[in-house]
Amino acid sequence: MTFGQLEIFVALSEAQSFTLTARRLGISQPAVSHALKSLETALNVSLFDRQGSQIVLTPIGAQLLERAREILGLSRTMQQEAASFRGLDTGNLRIGSFGATSSLQLLPDLMSAFHRAYPGIDVFIEEAADDIIVKWLEERRIDMGFVVLPDDRFETIPIATDQFVALVPRQSALAKQERVTLSDLCNDPFIMPESGSVKIVSALFAAAGLTPQTRYRTSQLLSTLSMVGRGQGVSVVAEMAVPAAHPDAPWVIRPLSPAHPRMIGLALHPTAVRSPAVTAFLRIAKTLRTRPRGA
């Protein structure tokens, strides 16, 4: 059993395709097949079930996948610690990001500061919805990820304070109000954002004993902005996810009354060993904590 075989095993579990795995790793498809066969022979178990052109992890394969990720993570940590001892800041870092809030508002400053301090460390950003980021953290596919706090499943570090706001058409009566209540938003067709905030937004209305007139469900923020701008409904979104509005934009945001803040943080698997790259990134992140616009 070699590290190369484990890397191919992990990559194959994510791509679920010999062809895609070979392309991703820059090796031949026969090399992927040979590595998997050699690993299965060494372990004396079948790691995948072949179902036509697709492959699916066997129960023991799913169990050993977590061990493989642990081993590879420890290997990377050892390499980075050795490089740090030699005075070489090299390595890599995998971060999960959930859309506009973290990818557009938080990561740019973080990445700029990190690359200035550690130009030799490669950072890979993987984007997905909130629940997928959590799944990747649990599977150790990423070293850390942005999550909405609190989250007791992980070790977390608060990074930014955000808040939910009402998104309404500029020409509507609601746009003339300084603040908008959840009850106000129940009088118009509601556009439910499905891109990760749906559980939180639904919980806000439920806690207030209200039910919005959900007529549309959108998976992209740009779709929500466009529909609200055309007067097709109203919505509730995270303030940090919304781009700065042009004076002529057909939509506006208004603070909710009462306010509904949220805290965003970086999360790590509780048993993961922190590599020097992870430690360095967290140290920089703590110095660049952000507050919502207008706070």
Results as ranks from 00 to 15, higher is better:
166 A>K: 10
29 Q>I: 03
123 V>M: 15
289 R>G: 09
36 L>R: 09
295 A>K: 12
153 R>S: 02
199 K>L: 07
134 V>F: 06
254 R>D: 09
170 R>G: 02
228 V>C: 02
175 A>P: 04
264 I>G: 02
160 A>F: 03
40 E>M: 02
43 L>W: 01
207 A>G: 06
197 S>W: 02
192 M>Y: 07
90 T>R: 11
65 L>Q: 07
250 P>V: 00
69 R>Y: 00
237 V>G: 06
154 F>K: 04
107 L>A: 08
182 L>Y: 07
282 L>F: 12
291 R>F: 00
158 P>G: 05
59 P>I: 00
226 S>W: 14
231 G>V: 00
184 D>L: 06
125 I>M: 06
136 W>G: 03
25 L>V: 09
141 R>E: 11
108 P>T: 00
140 R>F: 04
224 T>D: 14
8 I>A: 04
7 E>V: 09
271 T>R: 15
44 N>M: 08
105 Q>N: 13
50 R>L: 02
170 R>S: 10
277 A>D: 10
188 D>C: 04
188 D>F: 03
288 L>F: 04
154 F>E: 01
153 R>G: 00
67 R>E: 09
271 T>I: 07
226 S>L: 11
76 R>L: 10
85 F>V: 00
63 Q>Y: 06
66 E>V: 00
290 T>C: 15
150 P>H: 09
48 F>P: 01
126 E>K: 13
139 E>M: 11
85 F>C: 03
246 H>K: 14
245 A>D: 08
267 A>Q: 11
219 S>L: 13
195 S>Q: 06
58 T>C: 06
3 F>R: 11
24 R>W: 02
292 P>S: 13
258 P>T: 01
57 L>T: 05
184 D>R: 07
167 L>T: 00
255 P>K: 12
210 L>A: 07
240 M>S: 08
208 A>K: 12
22 A>P: 10
258 P>S: 02
254 R>M: 04
201 V>I: 13
101 T>S: 14
82 A>W: 08
19 T>C: 02
239 E>I: 06
88 L>Q: 14
178 E>M: 06
187 N>V: 01
229 G>E: 01
181 T>K: 09
141 R>P: 00
133 I>M: 13
37 K>R: 15
70 E>H: 05
292 P>E: 13
88 L>C: 04
126 E>T: 14
92 N>T: 03
171 Q>S: 12
276 P>C: 10
38 S>W: 02
186 C>N: 04
11 A>T: 03
230 R>W: 11
110 L>G: 07
132 I>P: 13
282 L>M: 12
134 V>M: 10
30 P>W: 03
239 E>F: 12
271 T>K: 15
265 G>A: 09
277 A>Y: 10
181 T>L: 05
94 R>K: 14
241 A>L: 03
122 D>R: 15
233 G>T: 03
3 F>V: 04
252 V>Y: 03
147 V>H: 09
15 A>K: 15
53 S>P: 05
57 L>K: 08
1 M>V: 03
285 A>Q: 10
44 N>E: 11
236 V>K: 09
41 T>F: 10
105 Q>T: 06
110 L>A: 08
196 G>F: 01
261 P>F: 07
2 T>R: 15
191 I>Y: 08
268 L>A: 11
34 H>S: 08
63 Q>C: 02
126 E>M: 11
237 V>Q: 13
28 S>M: 05
257 S>W: 08
